[in-house]
């Protein structure tokens, strides 16, 4: 019982954090077909901007301001970089963001130094909210939960219920038609890219002090974000949400399983001292998302809830 409660709670929080990170990427990916390799770098920028803004003002200002700055940077990247590369195809776009990730990493090191910065949870949220089974749950974890849910609702409302959302959705599938109807499609693209980056920035503000803020944080977060987006399916915010939750829960539940391969396949004669037999499910847990990615793409290339092939 204890294990299940813990795993559920942790899985949901981790899943929501993953969702915050990947929702922006899903937006960009589904709209422009660009797998933004630098997405995790924008997440990092969010954390660093928040650190700087927090130093000058306070956390709440940073929470609003940092994502906006990241969004503006993202719009600049789209306007003067990506748009130019667009003519050379998707591979070129992808490689552009690949190079951009390198660049942002290095610039962050020049500006903020090469080691981690002291970006801490604000005092107002730095207290244990409740305790279950001897483990404290800090208020900040619950705060993450609420911010993520708020973001999910806001995004959903914006995309499904407003006029701007309709245009974006239309531009997603039929950019030429939308252009003919008199909308400025390049501007929409720029806006969406900026918004996607801003969402990554928001995740950075939240995740930067929950985890650590250092120049390696982008590299560490990079791959898992792709997994969420691709498993969830292209063009599907719901899919990204489901995938993020699935991965969060899968991973945390797996950590609590101490069984080894020998315990499971022992009837086949696998010895617990052999190299393969001694591997436990728990130690494999962080690799499961990648296994899931490969399997899903082979079985169902549209992803869980996507409507077209990735």
């Amino acid at each position: 019982m204890e294990t299940i409660v813990f795993s559920l709670l942790n899985g949901i929080i981790y899943g929501l954090l993953l969702f915050m990170l990947s929702s922006g990427l899903t937006l960009i990916f589904s709209m422009m077909g660009v797998l933004n390799f630098a997405h995790a770098s924008f997440y990092m920028l969010g954390a660093y901007f928040a650190y700087t803004v927090m130093g000058a003002t306070n956390y709440w200002v940073a929470l609003i301001l940092a994502p906006i700055i990241v969004g503006v940077v993202g719009m600049g990247v789209e306007r003067w970089g990506l748009r130019r590369v667009h003519a050379n195809g998707h591979v070129a776009e992808l490689l552009f963001t690949f190079g951009l990730a390198y660049l942002i990493d290095e610039i962050v090191k020049i500006v903020w130094g090469r080691t981690s910065v002291n970006y801490q949870v604000p005092d107002a949220l730095n207290f244990p909210l409740f305790t279950i089974y001897n483990a404290q749950y800090s208020a900040y974890r619950i705060f993450i939960l609420f911010v993520a849910i708020f973001m999910l609702c806001a995004l959903w409302y914006l995309l499904k219920k407003t006029r701007a959302g309709l245009i974006i959705q239309a531009a997603l599938t039929h950019p030429h038609m939308v252009g003919h109807l008199g909308h400025n499609v390049p501007a929409i693209f720029m806006g969406v890219f900026g918004a996607g980056c801003a969402l990554a920035g928001l995740a950075g503000v939240i995740g930067g002090n929950y985890f650590i803020t250092d120049p390696a944080m982008a590299v560490q977060m990079g791959p898992i974000v792709f997994v969420v987006v691709v498993v969830g399916g292209l063009g599907s915010l719901e899919g990204a949400f489901v995938a993020a939750m699935l991965i969060g829960l899968l991973q945390t539940f797996a950590i609590s399983i101490n069984a080894s391969f020998a315990d499971i396949f022992g009837f086949l004669g696998l010895s617990p001292t052999s190299e393969f037999g001694s591997i436990t499910i728990a130690s494999m847990a962080p690799m499961l998302p990648f296994l899931l990615l490969v399997l899903i793409l082979i079985v169902r290339p549209t992803g869980l809830m996507g409507d077209r092939e990735v």
């Binding site: 791959p223 792709f226 691709v230 990615l293 793409l297």
Partner: peptide, 19 residues
């Protein structure tokens, strides 16, 4: 992995490489 091309292929290769 070769059952797919394009981005799914790229993503499978990423997953396989990580594994």
């Amino acid at each position: 992995s070769c059952k797919r091309s394009g981005t799914p292929f790229a993503m499978i290769s990423l997953g396989v490489a990580e594994l």
